[in-house]
Amino acid sequence: MQIVATFEHTVFLEMALSQLKERGISDLFALPLDNRTEERRLLDTLHYSDGATLMGKGMVLAALLSVVGASRGFELEWGPVYWGLIGGASGFVTGVAIDLFIHKVAKKKRRLLKGKRSEVILIINCGETDAAWIEPLLWEHLALGLAKME
């Protein structure tokens, strides 16, 4: 039987490994995952989308400012059509700039403050009798996930 568990790379993982070795389980394999080194893409493609968009606030501001520009355009020299287009374009550019700032600066700081670390995958080969006490031991040491394969 194999037990596969994921852990954060913390002291709890080391404690679980030492307790497993003390109880005679020597057939284990711990594999640390690498952290992402490249930045996430800002522009989505047809086959890749992470759910974040840069155009949400831009579209809302474009609609609002085009209405305001068109209504004020009746009093201005160029007329409502041109001022509506100018308001829409300036609202879209402002919204995209706000979203770009949020994604590049604010969320990057939040990611760095969180301190996201890579996980460790632990694979244990054991018998069915050992699996009865190994599973609770791994949960006690804050395993993120656990699976058993026979």
Score class of each variant (00 low, 15 high):
residue 7 F to A: 03
residue 8 E to R: 03
residue 8 E to S: 08
residue 9 H to A: 02
residue 10 T to D: 13
residue 13 L to C: 01
residue 14 E to N: 08
residue 14 E to K: 01
residue 18 S to V: 11
residue 19 Q to C: 00
residue 20 L to C: 04
residue 21 K to W: 08
residue 24 G to P: 01
residue 25 I to S: 02
residue 27 D to S: 05
residue 29 F to Q: 00
residue 30 A to D: 08
residue 32 P to Y: 00
residue 33 L to M: 12
residue 42 L to D: 14
residue 42 L to C: 05
residue 44 D to N: 15
residue 49 S to Y: 05
residue 50 D to M: 05
residue 50 D to T: 14
residue 52 A to R: 12
residue 52 A to L: 15
residue 53 T to D: 15
residue 56 G to D: 03
residue 56 G to I: 08
residue 59 M to C: 14
residue 66 S to T: 07
residue 73 G to D: 07
residue 76 L to T: 10
residue 76 L to E: 05
residue 76 L to D: 09
residue 79 G to F: 12
residue 80 P to A: 13
residue 80 P to G: 10
residue 81 V to G: 11
residue 81 V to R: 00
residue 82 Y to H: 05
residue 82 Y to N: 00
residue 91 G to R: 02
residue 94 T to Q: 02
residue 95 G to T: 09
residue 95 G to V: 13
residue 96 V to A: 07
residue 97 A to C: 15
residue 105 V to K: 12
residue 106 A to S: 14
residue 117 R to T: 15
residue 119 E to T: 13
residue 125 N to R: 08
residue 126 C to A: 11
residue 126 C to I: 04
residue 127 G to N: 06
residue 128 E to F: 08
residue 131 A to S: 12
residue 133 W to D: 04
residue 134 I to P: 14
residue 134 I to K: 04
residue 137 L to Q: 04
residue 140 E to G: 07
residue 144 L to V: 09
residue 146 L to R: 00
